[in-house]
Structure formats: C-alpha cells, structure tokens
C-alpha cells in the first residue's frame, strides 16, 4: 500500500515537471511567436504572410520537402527491405552509414555537397557543360534535405521488418508468388503504419531544415530561399512582424503534421491490436 502511495506522489511530481518544462520551453515561445506576428494587427500579418517572397519561400519549402520525402520513401523502403530480408557482405557497414546524417552536423552535410558539386569539385566540369546547376540552386536544396532526413523512414521500418521475420515471405514464395506480389500482399501490410509514421517524421524534419540548406542555397531571395532561410533573413533585417508571421506558417504546417501523426498512431495501434 505504501509503495502505491509513493508512486502516486512520484507520478504527480513527474507530471508537474513535464508541464512546467514544456510550458517554459515550448508553449511560451509559441505564444510569443503568434503575439509578435500579430503585433502590427491582422492586416500587417496578412500582408507579411502574402508577401511575394514569403509565398515563394513557402512554395519552395513544400517542393523541397515533397522531393526529399518521395526519394527517401523509396530509398528507405529499399534499405530496410534489403537490410532485413537478405544476407550479404557489408550489411553492418550499410546499416551504420544510414545513421550517419543523424550524427554529422548539417553544416558539414552542406559543405560536403559544395565541395563535391562546386567549382573546385570533381563533377563541376561535367555538370556545367551540361548546364546543370546544383549548388546555389533548387537541386542543392533538395539534395541537402534528402541527406539530413534519409535515416528517418528506414529507421522506422527496420525494427518492424526484423520482428516480422522471413517466414511469411518464404511461405508466399513457395506458393509461387513473385517478389513484387510478396512485397505488396505480405510485407507491405506489416510496414504500412510504420512507413506513414516515418514519412510524417521525415516531412517534419525536411520542412524545418536550416543548416545544410543554408550552406547550399546561396540565399537568393525568391529563388533559393526556403522558409527557414527567409525567416532568418527577415529577422536579420529587424522585420520582426514579417519574421514571426513567416514562422507562424511553419508552425501551422508543423501542427498539421503533428495531428497527422496522432491519427496515424491511433489507427496503426488499433490495427496492431487486431493482429496481435
């Protein structure tokens, strides 16, 4: 009985700690962003949000995110699939490499591409002669976003696929199913929710990426400025209303993602309950 009582006290202490922490570090700043964004009144906010450059930055952010998420979904599924269902040499090495972007600073990620595709880079001559520009252009931004977000999807899938084992696939193969049919009918239902969850995480991270993109973008207003870069630009120019208004766009996008995440988690849980 005493133990239960202790746990009751502990529970409340922990709850209070969490709430105080979240209020100070998350809620307060969020309220402040909204408040500052509306300091110049609704008109000022709408003007700042519908500013030509703000819209272009938003559009670029969305585009870069879609590209990065699309490519990482494909790569993530491939990587998770080959790491869990096949045995080959260098498997451990590959698995370690996938985690690299999490450990490397985004600035370095940006610099890597500048060095590879920039004027001093070994590929510059070839790319330039074909009229392809990567750094200080949209492809560079997409590349940087892909780099920083590429472990997100595969890392969600690998544990699920490992837990599932290979028996079901073998059973399907023995009945004559082809690889793609096996993936579609047997493997995919297992990873569906993990994949969606991974996509959500990847999207959230891709939208907010600043460091690597900052190195590669070249900060061309209306051309290569993503939302986070645009916000920084306005902030440096002491345009607080503009900066915070643009921030609020990112915040709204993040909230949408958060709600999606919640829905996915709930639905996925329900289905897992049925199948456990």
């Amino acid at each position: 009985m005493d133990i239960r009582k202790d746990k009751g006290v502990l529970k409340w202490v922990l709850i209070v700690i969490c709430f105080v922490f979240l209020s100070v570090f998350l809620l307060l700043p969020l309220v402040y962003i909204i408040a500052t964004a509306f300091r110049a009144g609704i008109q000022g906010y709408i003007k700042a949000v519908t500013d030509e450059y703000a819209l272009k930055a938003t559009w670029l952010t969305i585009r870069a995110t879609l590209w990065a998420v699309g490519i990482n979904t494909f790569f993530g599924i491939s990587a998770a699939w080959c790491l869990t269902k096949f045995a080959f040499k260098g498997k451990k090495l590959l698995s370690t490499f996938i985690d690299l972007p999490v450990t490397v600073s985004p600035i370095i990620a940006g610099l890597i591409y500048v060095l590879t595709f920039g004027r001093q880079g070994p590929l510059y001559g070839f790319l330039d002669s074909h009229g392809i520009q990567i750094i200080f252009a949209v492809p560079g931004i997409v590349l940087a976003t892909i780099f920083v977000t590429f472990p997100f999807i595969s890392r969600e899938l690998i544990p699920v696929l490992t837990a599932q084992g290979t028996d079901e696939e073998e059973a399907a193969a023995l009945m004559g199913a082809r690889t793609f049919t096996i993936f579609r009918k047997v493997t995919f239902p297992h990873i569906k929710w993990a994949l969606l969850y991974g996509i959500v995480l990847c999207t959230a991270r891709a939208m907010g990426e600043f460091g690597a993109v900052s190195v590669l973008s070249g900060h061309l207003r209306g051309k290569t400025n993503t939302l986070p870069l645009y916000i920084e630009l306005l902030y440096q120019g002491y345009d607080f209303t503009g900066a915070f208004a643009a921030s609020s766009i990112l915040v709204i996008m993040a909230v949408i993602i958060l709600i999606l995440r919640l829905v996915i988690e709930q639905k996925g849980k329900k289905e897992i309950d049925i199948n456990r």
């Binding site: 028996d167 073998e170 059973a171 009918k185």
Partner: peptide, 20 residues
Amino acid sequence: PGSERGIGFVFQSYALFRYM
C-alpha cells in the same frame, strides 16, 4: 525453384499471413 516442385510447406511458426 521450390514453387515448381509440387510441395506444400507447413512452417514451425505456421507463417500464416497475419494481415489476411
């Protein structure tokens, strides 16, 4: 290939398709 050998296989863990 195994699928053309005319065999049926029952796995130890049964390996039933959990989502079917």
